[in-house]
Design a protein around this nucleic acid. Structure first.
Lengths: 113, 113
DNA sequence: TCCGGTGTTGACTATTTACTCAACATGCGC
DNA sequence: GCGCATGTTGAGTAAATAGTCAACACCGGA
């Protein structure tokens, strides 16, 4: 598995911008980006990852999954609903595979069709 | 809506134990329980809520939902899977109702039948 | 009446999180 | 061989999180 930092560097280089430019647009210090890319610091807050991905025009799923963190709004949505909590516990018990999660997402899309 | 503290007090009294006894079993200071019950401090960490609910033999969903927090193991399960993240984002976009979450949980149970 | 059990309050603290700031290194064009 | 853009590193920090500790107040029974 690629580290968070390695993948971040790949994404930034793909956009061909410097650490300083990315940092400024994201709103953090450029030295922070450097340390992240070298895995010298733990990954940033989930919300910061979202901002980074927006600038780099990348899907946040990959980088977020590499950190195990969840964005604030996701936590809120899941956290404030008892029914959602129940769902999550059930999913945890079943230890779903990636494919099963995919199937559920499909199912979800059809839920209102 | 009942506050976290109010509901905690209800649950503790239902078990008919003192703040001190609950606190000792949970592993926190008894004055902490007092402040929680009077909503003088923000709710504890999600994992502490789980311990409290275990002692009080109550389902954690209600108290957890009152705080908007998620247990560590739930966050890990969801956070480390890109497919799960995608699911969560989709769910967020759709802004599911409690009933819809319930339907999904049912669906989940049948997923392997 | 005083004492043990209970609850409340204010002040303080330890840890973690999420970074910043200042300084230095390195490569490249000119 | 200077200047400038870029990247790296060590030390430090601001805010949030999750509580603790000591002191006091109240009440019912012996």
């Amino acid at each position: 598995m690629k580290t968070f930092g390695y993948r971040l560097r790949e994404l930034r280089r793909a956009k061909d911008i410097s650490q300083r430019e990315l940092a400024e647009k994201v709103g953090v210090d450029f030295s922070y980006i450097s340390k992240l890319e070298n895995d010298r610091l733990p990954p940033p807050a989930a919300d910061t990852i979202l901002r980074i991905c927006k600038i780099l025009e990348a899907s946040p799923d990959e980088l977020l999954a590499a950190t195990g963190k969840m964005p604030t709004h996701s936590k809120e949505m899941l956290g404030t609903s008892a029914a959602a909590q129940q769902f999550v516990r059930q999913a945890h018990e079943m230890d779903l595979s990636e494919d099963e999660w995919g199937a559920l997402t499909k199912r979800l899309r059809r839920l209102r069709s």
